[in-house]
């Protein structure tokens, strides 16, 4: 399959899936806006109204971290189940297996465009000004996307080999949620611990980068970001080779499981 056809197919599958998803709900596409709004509303209720967190900017701190994290966690979890979930198709047609997780990644990507637009609108409404530093969001978004693709490919392979991985991935996402500094600030840790967390957990680094740029007008550590980008690009490349080489094995696993 030519690469242009492949990406057109990814795009079509993603858009069709979004449409099919929207058709399931009474409120349809409105959920794209409602979901992030409800998250922020919930944070406001819990942390500002009930727990009376007086820290300034805490609401935006939470919203930025959580809404960026959801992009990662939701997409990877969903994409991991796509080869197995698409077994009806897998058994009938020979298409590159990466198509399935990548279509799910793009489904998440298109949805996230709206979420980020809302988030940045919130930030501006809250008084944060858009500066040229915001350009740094572009490489951060790209690296975040590459991380999602890499993890989705790995997840899709693992779940294909054994359904049990689906459970582990969900637990893993919960673990990541607690260790990536969504509800707490990595920078409040001792410098050594903070460095350790950021070095070991690229998700924590990326979430912090979003906040540094959008809330503190500070560019992220670009060397660190480039390194994460390079490592995950290599993973994506390796996984494409692995999936391509084992597509018949994966098809058999998906069909017979």
């Amino acid at each position: 399959m030519p690469l242009s056809q492949y990406f057109r197919l990814v795009d079509t599958m993603a858009r069709m899936a979004l449409r099919a998803d929207a058709m399931k709900f009474y409120l349809g596409y409105l959920w794209w806006i409602l979901e992030p709004l409800l998250w922020v509303g919930m944070f406001y209720l819990v942390f500002v109204v009930l727990m009376q967190f007086r820290e300034p900017n805490f609401l935006m701190f939470l919203a930025t971290g959580k809404l960026a994290f959801i992009w990662f966690s939701k997409t990877v979890t969903q994409a991991s189940n796509t080869i197995v979930g698409g077994r009806g198709l897998v058994g009938k047609i020979k298409v590159p297996m990466t198509l399935f997780p990548l279509a799910a990644v793009h489904e998440g990507l298109y949805r996230q465009v709206v979420v980020f637009a809302l988030l940045f609108a919130f930030l501006m409404l809250d008084g944060y000004s858009v500066t040229s530093t915001w350009w740094y969001l572009v490489p951060v978004l790209v690296v975040n996307y590459i991380m999602i693709v890499a993890c989705s490919f790995i997840g899709a392979c693992l779940v294909c080999m054994a359904r049990d991985f689906s459970q582990l991935i969900q637990l893993g996402m919960m673990f990541l949620m607690f260790t990536s500094g969504i509800f707490w600030d990595v920078r409040t840790l001792s410098p050594e611990t903070a460095a350790l967390v950021m070095n070991l957990n690229p998700v924590a680094f990326v979430l912090d980068a979003y906040r540094q740029i959008a809330m503190h007008n500070t560019p992220p550590d670009m060397v660190h970001l480039a390194l994460i980008g390079a490592v995950f690009s290599a993973i994506v490349f390796a996984m494409v080779l692995v999936i391509r080489g084992s597509s018949q094995y994966l098809a058999l696993k998906a069909i017979t499981a």
Partner: peptide, 8 residues
């Protein structure tokens, strides 16, 4: 039935 999406 090439994996129809029932909603579409």
């Amino acid at each position: 039935g090439l994996g129809f999406q029932p909603q579409l």
